[in-house]
Nucleic acid binder design. Structure first.
Length: 793
DNA sequence: CCTCATATACTTTTT
DNA sequence: GTATATGAGG
């Protein structure tokens, strides 16, 4: 290939690294610490940069690239730099630009694994039976295809859900297994049909000239493995390779990198094994652990000086992560000496937890909590699972606290956007069967399942695309009145739009608007009276606006599938709410980590599915969470939580036990008298292990005693001569309260619902609840079942 | 063919 | 509790 000859000559003639060094001054090196500097200046040979949280990883990485460029060691196009997110790629570009003073033209090969590989794959698509204009399917398309294949194979899609198959195949692809490489042990999955369906799926993708996300990597690995000449080109082309977040690479990515790097071995991988949190998605921590074996003589640099967090926060994070086995091991340190301890607080239930967090945020905002008022955008709530966000959203909505959810449903994954895109795709290419299927009956055209089947059959019989099939159906009048009319209107419209795409008679933005209009799609949402309809129309407007940044529809469609980003950065100071995963790479002065309860965090599912490995990944997630905090880190848990409609009592997370006591301050919930539960001297272990019932008491006093319902209950109990004295004399009362019940009684609890008393232990009643299972509950929370209806909770 | 009602299962995390 | 899938009725 001619592309390379020029570079090769250049390389041969000039010992670049020394000679070019003089070309530009290197002032940027001065702001680096010794470890960073070593990582930046070791330009040749394999380098593993172990960069703990907040140690200036991105700085080192971008400075390294700047150094490669300004010393003349490499030219921009000779550097392959891969990240996982578009955001990381963009940030790197910006920072390199800043370092180099705008002097560099963009780096063409700095991007995400997927965008770089897609670009390469388009050049060599024919080697895996594709055309270079292949489309990239998202998981939605993937699942729909899967469903068709499953049904075609005569398998009950109910018992064998397409989603599951899609997940299995994704995993195989992450391991770089083509259908023929799936090991025997995996053949039993999916009713022994998994591999056959995998083959069928791959064939179908090829027919559609499409790839899914996993394919982008998998095909590249296949090409490199089967075509040494192609590999050789790129080995010479990419003289320097840099990889961000190496701990998150899966096997396919690993193989791809190793193939590319095996010649010059100028590869620099940056990562932190302690922040590997994508194992469930196929990431292999092993890749980073194995680096030195893969690249003998590798230079290992540890970045351990943390510039982000206070010593207490660092120590707490270190304490938690220390429990994990098989780490490469780093010891974070900081020169800071100030700072608050990590704060720990328990609550009665999730509702109280969100209320407390809300109040705390407002206090910080006003400056009553800390010395200085803190802006809302400097605070974040990091949750384990997205459903935890709701409690906070509800609460913040009701108190009018501005918040922003990060990483919610992505813009390009929203239904209306995907529908609109399907129209665009069809306008550009009538061959896009998936797009056609998506929109035939959206908006409703009276074309139901039967009509679609007719179209599909016709298309298949004639060996044409669905659009052409539909045309034949219209011509042959194979369909009834209304459907037929609507279908021919649709086909005509598609023809017209495509004509305009080709003729370029309008700007693509105008065309897009016209398509949405004439298809009836805009009107469809205008007539929709559901509350989300206005938002969807708004999104469509945004989509059209986003089009303006592209040359034409084709260009837009090609880029969009890989740039799934939520660019709608609303203005204004808001608290951020996001998952721990979404928080990786971010930092905030104040961080709240709610829901630290066993089963929730660590997630039961992780532990069930992946055992110790899963638990360790959860622990790394905890580590990531804590290390997001710069100044104040607040961990909380609730004693009770509603999990899909059912109340469950929760145990504090085992990670709480792992927090080193001397770096933790246990808070007493507000509005409570001190009692024995004051913060002073109480260890995390105490909270975690033994004080749950105390928390019940405390929270109960705050929550329930003030409520009218409780007061009424109290007065009624008094009438009946039962326990109803002030709570300060709790033990006596509890024993009295217990005596009011007999085993076998039908009872009611405010949150657990109805149940049967099956035993009495001390001041607690053992109750088998109908819905919430068996629990030990203090007697004063319990009423006889026949009185339950009177309680106006 | 569409709309409405009921049943059901599902909840980690996502390039 | 929520979203989705199925069924009856219009």
């Amino acid at each position: 290939m001619n592309d390379f000859s020029e570079e090769d000559a250049f390389e041969a003639a000039v010992p670049l690294s020394q000679r070019a060094m003089a070309q530009r001054p290197t002032p940027y090196l001065d702001s680096l610490n010794p470890a960073q500097r070593e990582a930046v200046e070791t330009l040749h040979g394999p380098v593993l940069m172990l960069a703990g949280a907040g140690t200036g990883k991105t700085k080192a990485l971008t400075t390294r690239i700047a150094h490669l460029l300004s010393t003349g060691t490499a030219r921009p196009h000779e550097i392959l730099a891969v990240t996982f997110t578009n955001k990381a790629a963009r940030e790197m570009k910006e920072r390199i630009g800043a370092l180099m003073g705008e002097a560099v033209e963009g780096m063409p090969w700095l991007g995400t694994f997927h965008s770089v590989c897609a670009k390469l794959l388009r050049r060599h698509a024919e080697l895996v039976g594709l055309k270079s204009n292949f489309t990239i399917l998202d998981s939605d398309d993937q699942v729909r295809l899967m469903k068709q294949l499953i049904e075609a194979a005569g398998i009950d899609a109910k018992r064998w859900p397409p989603r599951m198959l899609s997940g299995i195949i994704d995993n195989w692809k992450n391991k770089a297994w083509t259908p023929d490489k799936v090991p025997d042990a995996d053949h039993a999955v999916f009713d022994h049909q998994g591999v056959a369906l995998y083959s069928a799926y791959q064939q179908r993708l090829r027919d559609l000239n499409a790839v899914d996300f996993g394919d982008i990597l998998l095909h590249m690995v296949t090409i490199f493995q089967k075509h040494p000449d192609v590999l050789d080109q790129y080995q010479r082309w990419f003289r320097f390779i840099l990889v961000d977040e190496y701990q998150d690479t899966n096997i396919a990515q690993y193989l791809w990198l190793r193939l590319l790097a095996s010649k010059d071995k100028n590869i620099c991988c940056v990562g932190d094994d302690d922040q590997s949190i994508y194992g469930w998605r196929g990431a292999e921590v092993g890749n980073i652990l194995r680096f030195e074996a893969d690249f003998p003589g590798a230079h290992v640099v540890r970045l351990e000086e943390n510039y982000r967090s206070t010593p207490h926060i660092l120590a707490a994070a270190s304490g938690v992560i220390a429990t994990n086995k098989g780490r490469l091991g780093k010891t974070l340190f900081t020169s800071r000496e100030d700072g608050e301890k990590v704060r720990l607080i328990g609550h009665w239930d999730g509702e109280e937890e969100s209320r407390w967090v809300g109040e705390e945020i407002e206090a910080m905002q006003r400056g009553t909590r800390c010395m200085m008022p803190m802006g809302l955008d400097r605070m974040a709530i990091l949750v384990r699972a997205s459903h935890q966000m709701r409690a906070f959203e509800d609460r913040f909505l009701s108190i009018g606290l501005p918040y922003r959810v990060i990483g919610g449903p992505r813009f390009y994954e929203r239904m209306e956007i995907r529908d609109a895109m399907a129209y665009f795709r069809l306008a550009v290419s009538h061959d896009d069967d998936l797009a056609f299927e998506r929109i035939v009956n959206t908006p409703k055209r009276g074309l139901g399942e039967k009509a679609v089947q007719t179209i599909q059959r016709t298309a298949r019989e004639n060996g044409v695309s669905l659009v052409e099939g539909a045309r034949l159906v219209c011509q042959g009048k194979l369909l009834g009145g209304k459907g037929l009319k609507e279908l021919s209107i649709l086909v005509d419209a598609l023809d017209r739009w495509r004509g305009q795409v080709i003729a370029e008679s309008d700007t693509h933005v105008e065309l897009a608007e016209m398509i949405l209009d004439e298809s009836g799609y805009t009107g469809f949402w205008q007539n929709d009276k559901t509350p989300e309809a206005p938002g969807r129309l708004e999104n469509l407007k945004e989509l059209v606006k986003a089009l303006e940044n592209f040359e034409n529809l084709q260009g837009f469609l090609e880029h969009v599938s890989l740039i799934m980003e939520n660019d709608t950065e609303e203005q204004g100071e808001k608290v951020s709410i996001m998952t721990l995963h979404a928080a990786k790479g971010l930092e905030f002065p104040a961080v709240f980590l709610p829901g630290w309860e066993d089963g929730l965090f660590p997630s039961q599912r992780s532990m069930d599915e992946s055992g110790v490995k899963g638990l360790e990944e959860e622990r790394r997630l905890a580590y990531v969470g804590i290390t997001r905090a710069e100044e104040i880190c607040t961990i909380s848990f609730a004693a009770n939580r509603r999990v899909y409609g059912q109340w469950q009592s929760q145990l504090p997370s085992r990670f709480i036990d792992e927090l080193p006591e001397e770096h933790v301050e246990v808070l007493t919930p507000p509005g409570l008298y001190g009692g024995n539960y004051g913060a002073a001297g109480m260890s995390s272990a105490t909270i975690a292990g033994t004080t749950q019932s105390n928390l019940h008491q405390k929270a109960h006093s705050a929550d329930v005693y003030d409520s009218p319902g409780w007061k009424r209950l109290q007065s009624r109990s008094q009438d009946r001569g039962q326990a109803a004295k002030p709570r300060a004399q709790s033990i006596t009362i509890d024993l009295e309260a217990v005596s009011a019940f007999t085993v076998g009684d039908r009872v009611f609890h405010q949150k657990f619902g109805y149940g049967e008393l099956i035993g009495i232990e001390g001041d607690k009643l053992v109750i088998e609840f109908d819905k919430a299972g068996s629990k030990h509950v203090m007697a004063r929370f319990i009423v006889a079942a026949d009185q339950a209806d009177d309680i106006p909770f």
